Computed example of a mutant assay.
Amino acid sequence: MTVTAPHDQVLPSDDGEALTLRLLGRFEVTGVPASALGAAGQRLLALIAVNGGVLARWQAAQALYPTTVDANAAANLRALLWRLQRHCPALLRTSATDLRLAPQVRVDYLVAVATARRLLTPPATTAQPVPEVAAQLREDLLPGWPEPWLVHERERFHQLRLHALEALCTHFSLVGRHGDAVDTGLEAVRADPLRESARRVLIDAYLTEGNVSEAVRQYQAFAVVLHAELGLQPTPALQRRLGPRASISPAGAVMTESWS
């Protein structure tokens, strides 16, 4: 596996310096105060970004003002666009039919999606430093935002980044980059502590480097949290990875019965 820079990373254009629209973890536009955008402006920029950077005007109006009749929704959108063009004209390009992010706007979410897809496409490619890749896949898409149009995309990206982190962890283990494998596996577990596949690649990373004690501790921690949260226990497949060691209870913890 090699890590190459994202092909869709936006460089400065003739329109001005590059701007970064952050959607992972929180909303932010570099160099643009939140007050200049307002809540509606933030939602519009995020909506366009999660749709690949371009959206029909009628779709934007319908998504932003779902309980408003079409004529009023269109009027509200026109007023919003006037405000954005007045206070931060470098962000959007508009036409009679479409709304587009300006060419110099780099969206961290779109870069992360491209990176994750490369990691999951054999032969997976990533020439970026491991901390940079991990940072791209560390956060979810606008956590806490209640917009209905975000629900599916947020879950889709959550699953995509977890699969990418797991694939990267497994690759690093196979090529002997044990420290990178553990770091990536820990990131996957942090993203979803109840996900067995994430815990499995981390346990495998520890076993591959010969660190059995850490593998056992990870298994025990998973067994405890899984039972506490869901009343479940690890699958037999995960138990078999550790053999008899899987039945060792951590100090002060109550373990569930072993599978037969």
Rank of each mutant, 00 (worst) to 15 (best):
D8P: 00
L47I: 12
P6W: 11
R26E: 08
T68Q: 15
P33G: 04
R22N: 04
D14Q: 07
A49N: 04
R26V: 11
D14A: 15
A40E: 10
S13T: 15
L45I: 11
G16C: 07
A60I: 06
L55S: 00
A74L: 06
P12F: 10
Q59G: 02
Q62F: 09
G25H: 04
D70K: 09
A74T: 07
P12H: 12
A18F: 15
V50A: 11
T68F: 03
Q59W: 06
L21T: 13
N51H: 14
L23H: 04
S35A: 15
A71F: 14
L44W: 07
H7E: 10
Y65R: 01
P12M: 14
P12V: 15
A5Y: 11
S13N: 00
Q62L: 10
T67A: 12
T68C: 08
V50C: 09
P66M: 04
R57T: 09
L64F: 07
T4V: 15
P66D: 11
G38I: 02
R57I: 15
R22H: 08
G41F: 12
A39S: 12
A18Y: 10
E17I: 14
L47K: 06
A49C: 15
S13H: 08
A36N: 09
Q59M: 13
D14L: 15
L19K: 12
A36M: 05
G25D: 09
L19F: 12
T30Y: 02
T67P: 00
G52N: 03
A63R: 03
Y65S: 05
F27R: 02
A46Q: 02
A46G: 15
G16L: 14
G41P: 05
A40P: 00
A49R: 08
L21K: 07
V54G: 01
D70H: 07
S35H: 08
A61K: 02
L55P: 00
A34N: 03
G53L: 06
A73V: 07
T68W: 01
